[in-house]
């Protein structure tokens, strides 16, 4: 059913929003505030470990070499130690480039037909907005720690101060809130506007983006338009981490929607494409050194083969070979 993926995702978000609204005005809010946080967290942690262990059980017998740079060979041939590493440190460097700067996405190219001829060029927009979104998301998650620890660690205050450096409006507009919105909007519009991408986009692609957009939007609404009572919010969050949760009254409806989205994200995360957060570290094309010519890698499930080497052959027939006048390696 091509073309209905977007509709289904929007519908899922609407159902989530409406059920959050329904919960907000009933005693069920106890469930959302006290039981669901723990359930969601346990599913997130458990699911994350389950996925990683499942990946780690798949054998990767051979080094998967991607031709991103000259591999290390003869000393007078210049090699690319980060693009085609042959050592552990090289692999760590390549992984750091990948995790922090999205190195392979930087290689993204686009093709266009110019005068009946395909022309390839670099396409950095996806890399730029992808990086913008991920770093903003990290800053936002770290800033949220102010609700979970008391007293607030100085580095969290410092981060918030830098993020709100320009002191635009009251309460201060955080730059990461703007950039996360810009990143997500680009990633979403990209799937909408490019026909080829729209063709391959599935429910899970749209849902991930819409859910994150929902979280960001409700967060911004709570900060700038329908202020949530931060005293209650922090009491609740501290209640969770000290295992003495208490459902507060009158924190505002938007807060319920925000929480429902966040818990949905936590539960869905390990079983979705978002698991690339853990998966990136287990990518064989990124985490295996290109040392096929330096070391012999044995396939772990090779059946034991009985071999008869030339040395053994010579030992067995040495006398006969000598008599026949055949050349021998060992006399």
């Amino acid at each position: 059913m091509i073309g209905q993926h977007l509709e289904i995702s929007v519908l899922a978000i609407l159902i989530l929003t409406l059920s959050a609204l329904g919960i907000a005005f009933t005693p069920l809010s106890f469930l959302l505030m006290v039981i669901l946080p723990y359930a969601a967290f346990v599913i997130f942690i458990g699911g994350f470990i389950y996925r990683v262990v499942k990946w780690a059980k798949a054998p990767v017998p051979f080094r998967i070499t991607t031709t991103c740079g000259q591999q290390s060979s003869l000393p007078w041939i210049k090699s690319a130690p980060l693009e085609s590493p042959s050592t552990v440190w090289g692999v760590i460097g390549r992984m750091a480039l990948e995790v922090f700067l999205f190195r392979s996405l930087f290689r993204n190219t686009d093709v266009a037909i110019v005068g009946q001829r395909p022309v390839y060029g670099s396409a950095k927009w996806l890399w730029f907005f992808g990086l913008l979104f991920h770093w903003s998301m990290l800053v936002i998650v770290l800033r949220h720690l102010r609700f979970f620890i008391e007293p607030i660690a100085p580095w969290i205050k410092g981060l918030s101060a830098i993020d709100g450096f320009f002191e635009i409006g009251v309460p201060t507009l955080y730059l990461s809130d703007l950039t996360v919105l810009a990143g997500l909007t680009f990633l979403f519009l990209r799937r909408m506007a490019v026909p080829r991408l729209r063709y391959i986009s599935l429910v899970t692609d749209y849902f991930a983006l819409l859910l994150l957009l929902g979280i960001v939007t409700t967060g911004l609404l709570m900060k700038h338009f329908f202020p949530a009572d931060l005293l209650h919010v922090k009491n609740l969050a501290l209640g969770w981490v000290t295992f003495a949760p208490a459902a507060p009254k009158g924190v505002g409806t938007v807060f319920y929607i925000h929480l429902s989205f966040v818990f949905t994200l936590f539960v869905w995360f390990p079983f979705s494409k978002l698991m690339h957060m853990g998966g990136i570290f287990l990518s064989p094309t990124r985490n295996l050194a290109n040392d096929n010519r330096m070391k012999r890698h044995l396939n772990p499930w090779n059946a034991p083969v009985k071999v008869h080497t030339y040395e053994e052959y010579e030992d067995e027939f040495r006398e006969k070979m000598k008599l026949a006048g055949l050349p021998l390696e060992k006399e």
Binding site: F44, I45, F48, I49, V52, V53, A56, K57, A58, P59, V60, L145, F148, I149, E150, A153, A237, L238, V241, T242, G278, F281, L282, P300
Partner: peptide
């Protein structure tokens, strides 16, 4: 079999420590 057992377990431990930061910090 769990391949690269040492690295995988180390990774999971780091993940657990980071993810439960609010729980052990206070």
């Amino acid at each position: 079999k769990l391949y690269n057992r040492g690295m995988v377990i180390a990774g999971i431990v780091v993940f657990l420590i980071v993810a439960t930061f609010p729980l052990w910090y206070g």
